[in-house]
Design a protein around this nucleic acid. Structure first.
Lengths: 219, 219, 219, 219
DNA sequence: TATGAATGAGGCTTCATTCAT
DNA sequence: TATGAATGAAGCCTCATTCAT
């Protein structure tokens, strides 16, 4: 099974981090429900209060279980965050892969447009959660660099560029990919949080498409 | 004195926030030195431990004064952060304004290039501090939206674009400015943290220049 | 069945202590096996982690059963300890009685020597378990004074001295017995934990023999 | 200054154990008083409830200060224990040294008697504290072998035996010393906790003296 | 003004025990 | 009878902030 954070491209061994990976796999249906309730609650509290103010007790309460149960499945407060993050990463990966697969064979521009609009849609979902997760990610980095996502996305984009090399005039596809990912990220994150125009306005996507094409030309 | 966060363009009244502005204006030399020592210490601890684990006691110790003294000049832990942030913002503002003034009258492309390289240089200084400050900024938002910086920078860029309207084919200079600022921000922040190539490599700046020009054309 | 802690000499009624005696007599083979597995596991965890950090869950896991099953046979964590202690006491009692019976009719010195070497051998077995049990004994005292062992051993020694009164010049056989038991205990416990010379070295036993004889002379 | 645990004989470097040594040296009189109050309270709670049931909150309460203050001077619950233990060790050392110095030049038997009665008196003070401290010592061992005391006492006794070698027929003074210390310890500890006769009864001391002399003869 | 001792609410986490399945 | 999920009281410890000296 693919690791949700590398998009199936890199194969870094995932070190057994202490206190971060889920403590026990829920076996019965009942516990499965508990885990889901906890994650949902964690997500809500995280969004409402921020990670610093999120307390394990509050999460448990909101999930309708006891703290003890929380710790039965998540060895630490941080583990909740990590699980939430990993799920989001998996979602992002699927979004990107879907967009590419469903446009296989079509021209580069079309695929880029599709990719961007899928991405925008994905990021627009649970915006605050995304922000808070991003905010906490640097902290986690020390514990094991979970967010290879950007790296993986960059590789993915580079691969797509290579696929379309004939149509484009790229020199350094890796650098182009990196620039695209970073600039798009900057724009999308800001657009989501504090949009300068309605997210549906086609100009937003079109500008990013143009930008992307320009970068595949001039880099 | 101008507010460091608005680049002198907007004139938002600064609401009387509780506990964030320095408690007293240090007039004497000794006090001034203490304040500086505290800020320096705060910066170091912030970088080393992160905001959450930065304790006022530790900051005071490292500054060589007592906690009591710290609270004489900064009414709260957050006030240290705010001051640090404001100074950084002021630095950024000065950097941008300098770059523009020193290239007044020159072609747009030249000015953009100068702006970008000044910005890169600025951000490369005290990278970790910048990151940590950015990380904490959303929290502060609630307390008084200090980071109008981006907004201000956007206005500034829009103004420059307008100045050069003749040379360019912009339709919506504000939107173009916004896109430029966000994409450049995305790239620079990533470049600083985890550079895909040496920061001195001219391709980095050139790519951003191209991107900027493209956006002034297609938006 | 005799109470393992009184060596069959005293007949204290055992008060109904809450939660300490095994919950049910395991009659079936399977249950018997479970109980043994639990006790073995408890012993191992006790030795490895100490009583405070020994958790019932860990014991159950190591025994290959569920916590629920543990509580089916032992009403509390403490009950495990008590059972372990009682078994050890029974072993000690048997060791002493054997040593005395097998040397019946022989001179005092011979019997003492035999007693001491049997005792040394017994204590050398499962040293760490013995230490941990001893450590926890004072706590249990409140709950029911299980460790009459020393008292019983003292009585036993006193009885032996009386048997040999003719050979000896004892005045107060009880006091002598008490002193012998305590001094020997002090030496053996230390010898086991941190031996000043190989336990087989005859000087160890001989010194204790001499000591014992001296005490039967001068007390 | 002599380390309280080695009686001035050995010179092991004391490793900086984390979390065990006092956190900060109290500078002002006020804090000195706080520290003393805490130790006194700790001692009382320790005796009344045992180490496991002793809570830092309870200690602080009884000392009339806040938990925060406790942690200002003792980095952990264990640190309280360690300090208490070290003070007791220092007291023991002083007791022994005093007894020896005040009887310098006198015959061996006299010195032994003096030593024993001083020791008995010392141990009779704060009996329960002594017991509880002893009970917890094995745990601490891992953290830095604080209780060199016995070893030190053994060396001391060996030295005294050597001083009187002329009067005695010892072969192995070290072994003799070890046996003496351990047997005496066994007897004293039991006598204190559960005396078979009034502690003042001269027979107790005399029996130990005889035992000691016997051991210096036959070992 | 400077010092640093004191405060105490509140966070994270553990673990013996119960009980529905 | 076995299982293991759930419980929740209770413990240890941190740290921003205050205030007597």
């Amino acid at each position: 099974m693919k690791d949700s954070s590398d998009f199936g491209y890199s194969h870094l061994p995932r070190p057994a981090r202490k206190h971060v990976s889920p403590r026990k796999r829920p076996l019965q249906a009942r516990s499965q429900a508990t885990v889901e309730a906890l994650l949902k609650a964690a997500s809500q509290v995280l969004v409402r209060d921020g990670y610093e103010r999120m307390t394990t007790t509050r999460v448990a309460e909101r999930a309708g279980v006891s703290v003890g149960s929380l710790y039965q499945y998540f060895p630490s407060k941080e583990a909740l965050l990590v699980e939430l993050l990993e799920r989001r990463m998996a979602g992002l990966r699927d979004t990107l892969l879907d967009a590419l697969q469903s446009t296989a064979g079509q021209p580069f521009k079309t695929r880029v447009r599709e990719l961007l609009s899928s991405l925008l849609e994905f990021k627009a979902r649970e915006v605050k959660l995304g922000i808070e997760l991003a905010r906490q990610t640097p902290r986690l980095e020390k514990l094991g660099a979970i967010q290879k996502v950007t790296a993986a996305a960059t590789q993915l984009v580079a691969a797509v560029i290579e696929e379309h090399r004939a149509e484009l005039k790229v020199k350094d596809s890796k650098l182009a990919a990196w620039l695209i990912v970073q600039s798009i990220t900057g724009i999308l994150d800001a657009a989501i949080t504090d949009p300068p125009l309605p997210l549906e306005d086609p100009r937003l996507i079109e500008a990013m498409v143009k930008m992307t094409l320009e970068l595949t030309r001039s880099v």
